[in-house]
Design a protein around this nucleic acid. Sequence first.
DNA 1: AATGAATGAGGGTTCATTCAT
DNA 2: TATGAATGAACCCTCATTCAT
Lengths: 197, 197, 197, 197
Amino acid sequence: MARIAQNIRELLLSSGKEQFLAYGFEKASLRTICKKAGLTTGAFYNHFSGKEDLFSSLVDPMIKGFQEMYQSVISQELADLTTGVENELTSITYAIKHKDEFRLLFECSNGTKYEGFKEHLIHEVFYPGYQEVFDRYAGRHVNPALVQIILHMKFEEYMELIYGGYTMEEVKKLIIQLAVFSEAGFHRLLEEVNKES
Amino acid sequence: MARIAQNIRELLLSSGKEQFLAYGFEKASLRTICKKAGLTTGAFYNHFSGKEDLFSSLVDPMIKGFQEMYQSVISQELADLTTGVENELTSITYAIKHKDEFRLLFECSNGTKYEGFKEHLIHEVFYPGYQEVFDRYAGRHVNPALVQIILHMKFEEYMELIYGGYTMEEVKKLIIQLAVFSEAGFHRLLEEVNKES
Amino acid sequence: MARIAQNIRELLLSSGKEQFLAYGFEKASLRTICKKAGLTTGAFYNHFSGKEDLFSSLVDPMIKGFQEMYQSVISQELADLTTGVENELTSITYAIKHKDEFRLLFECSNGTKYEGFKEHLIHEVFYPGYQEVFDRYAGRHVNPALVQIILHMKFEEYMELIYGGYTMEEVKKLIIQLAVFSEAGFHRLLEEVNKES
Amino acid sequence: MARIAQNIRELLLSSGKEQFLAYGFEKASLRTICKKAGLTTGAFYNHFSGKEDLFSSLVDPMIKGFQEMYQSVISQELADLTTGVENELTSITYAIKHKDEFRLLFECSNGTKYEGFKEHLIHEVFYPGYQEVFDRYAGRHVNPALVQIILHMKFEEYMELIYGGYTMEEVKKLIIQLAVFSEAGFHRLLEEVNKES
DNA sequence: AATGAATGAGGGTTCATTCAT
DNA sequence: TATGAATGAACCCTCATTCAT
């Protein structure tokens, strides 16, 4: 009845995910993680090099997968903010499939090298393209504060879609409705902005 | 040369705020808080009954104050989502004035009874009125998921206004612009929703 | 029956000295040190900032004292290797009085910042003056290898005088006899060295 | 592609020597030793019965060889301290050839049964003959403290010759010069000692 | 001969809280 | 009111060795 290494690794990953989600990286206890996986803390180190390695192993594959997906999405999207519904759906679907890992990354990574990942994502990855779209459509440089706030709102929209517990059908419908909302707001705002000058 | 109790209390509150903001409730060290306030851990317990009491003392007055303000605001607003700019400004101003305490509540309260306060605020306090406004304007029951997501986005908007480090002038201008954005989106969305049926 | 802080500190210093001497810095167990001093490991940290602080506290005062003594000795001695018996006695007496701390420094300091102190002492502190004396007496540059070996031998002589468990009378007599030994060897060697050229 | 047992044994010996020299017996990690030898800790126990067995296997052959050499040297030497330069050279040459093992024995054996080997060597093996030589030449019983100190100095001389990194030519020359030093000191000291009575 | 998972005790350190003074 | 020593459990991690495979 020997347990296979792969099994144990997965037991630990699963137990770690559970504890990290429940208590965050720092407060989660390695002892508890091991106990719930049915082994001693010493044994743990035959499978992972430490607490952070366990965390990374949970989160890294998802990050890599997301980056690949995002690259393919971005190459289509760049020109058009309003027609990206299909792409949004692709992204959200991926995120829902890995919602636990996303949550680890965004809310439970304090004390790891992934701390601040959400802010990095927003400011470094998403913001530049977002500002560019706004500027292009407005035909002028739009107030970065405005762009950033709207981007944050967009991001929050995604978070709710991911964690709201909706079925894919519901998500699809919601994305379309929210696109209507955003698009209308977007165009009306740009009109307004241009009137100012 | 006796220091007055009130002074000490305030020293501890100030030191605690600093540490809680920097490290969160759980990771902040009571020792450090006391050291920075210039007294010993033992003395601390003459002023507060424990770590969480210190946290509560930082956050409770602001909560009470906010509730009062919110009550007076809500009584005017209920009827009209689009004319609420003035009220929004009142709320945001209050929040900016207490931005540290808000941050404590929203981001540093893990491990205290205030954990999950943000979700409580959104779901229990804001959501019911929000849903009602949507329903009334649409003349029908709007999909709660939709309302909730937009509420979350609204909330995120406020967060950015509060923590963006803007001057009150900038905030005022941004609120107006974002009201344009939201209002346009709101109306267009309700049209769309009504078309469906 | 309260124990005073000073007492506890000294209990810990004494217990630490005992364990460090017996097992060396790294293998000595802080838990054991504390247990033998009659308190818990937690309590230890009210008196010292850590294991190395305890070690430093044992060894630093002696180093400072030795340096002061050595400065006053060196200022008299520089000119004459052979008449230093009185000064040697001063040094050795100091060392015997602090023999435990010397042993900590020389043989039990692995893993601390004092690691390699003996080599530092020989090469950086003693060697330069030693080489100079040899060179001056020989009237030429003496092979550094030779000087270094003899210096090491001298150092070993001191070690034995310190750790041999002799009374001060015995030490005094031995120093005189060994001075005879060294002096004769020294002069004969320099003759030989000069013959070579 | 089977590796031969002999090879593996030697890999382990070599890796062990490296780690023991670098960290000492106790601090050296068996895991690391095995990893550097390219196998697992489990496999190790097919070749050695434990950590100390590995250490012994490094050091025992050298001890045996040294004892044999020393026996043949001692049988010639006993009569004459001053003509032993040739014999000294033989011993030192052997030691230099096995300098790593000597260092293991003298400086890295803490925690093994070889702990205190240096003291054993000096007091049990070398001292009796040394005292005898002194007594015979002095024509009386020389103060054992004096003999022991000089013996320690002699031993330190050897250590420096072995670990100073000198070529055999340099060693040879140094031995001769140091013999001059020791011999002169020795004779002068015995005169002095005899004057006393 | 080799693997590598598991053990179980131990390492130094930090923590919020208590309490005699 | 203030002190600061003490508690006692918890933290992550390392270790030499064992043993079923």
